[in-house]
Computed example of a mutant assay.
Amino acid sequence: MNKETKIYIAGHRGMVGSAIWRKLEKEGYTNLIGRTSKELDLRNQQAVNTFFDTEAPEVVIDAAARVGGILANNDYPYQFLMENLQIQNNLIDASHKNNVEKFIFLGSSCIYPKHAPQPLKEEYLLTDSLEPTNEWYAIAKIAGVKACEAIRKQFDKDFVSLMPTNLYGSHDNFDLQTSHVLPAMIRKFHEAKENSEPVKLWGSGTPMREFLHVDDLADAVFFALEKELKENLYNVGTGKDLTIKELAETIQKITGHTGEIIWDNSKPDGTPRKLMNVDKLKNEGWSASTSLEEGIQKTYSWFLENNTNYKQVKL
Rank of each mutant, 00 (worst) to 15 (best):
E194R: 10
G107H: 00
S196I: 11
P119E: 03
F105V: 00
I261H: 08
V221G: 09
K26S: 13
V214Q: 08
S108G: 10
E83I: 02
S129I: 12
A138K: 01
A65W: 11
F222M: 11
W302N: 06
W286A: 03
W136A: 13
A138T: 00
E284D: 07
N235Q: 14
T250R: 14
K274M: 15
K97T: 00
V59H: 10
R273S: 15
E25I: 08
N90H: 07
A63R: 05
I151L: 05
I20F: 06
G28E: 10
G17N: 09
A224N: 10
E27Y: 07
S109N: 11
K240L: 13
V67F: 13
L247R: 05
L120Y: 08
G68W: 04
D241P: 01
E58I: 12
K23A: 10
A192P: 04
N283T: 09
Q154W: 07
I251G: 05
P113D: 06
T258W: 00
L42V: 06
A56H: 15
G169D: 07
Q177G: 09
R13D: 10
G237R: 06
F52D: 09
I111N: 02
K253E: 15
T127G: 03
F103C: 00
V100L: 00
Q88A: 11
V236N: 06
W136K: 03
K153Q: 14
L91C: 02
M82S: 10
F223L: 11
A288P: 06
K274C: 13
I186E: 01
T250E: 14
A224W: 09
I151Q: 01
Q45S: 15
K188D: 07
I111H: 00
C110K: 01
K200R: 14
N84L: 03
P77T: 07
N166Q: 12
S170D: 15
A288H: 04
K6Y: 13
L126D: 12
F303W: 12
V199R: 02
L130S: 09
K253N: 14
H12C: 13
K282D: 04
C148R: 01
V199L: 03
T54F: 08
A63H: 09
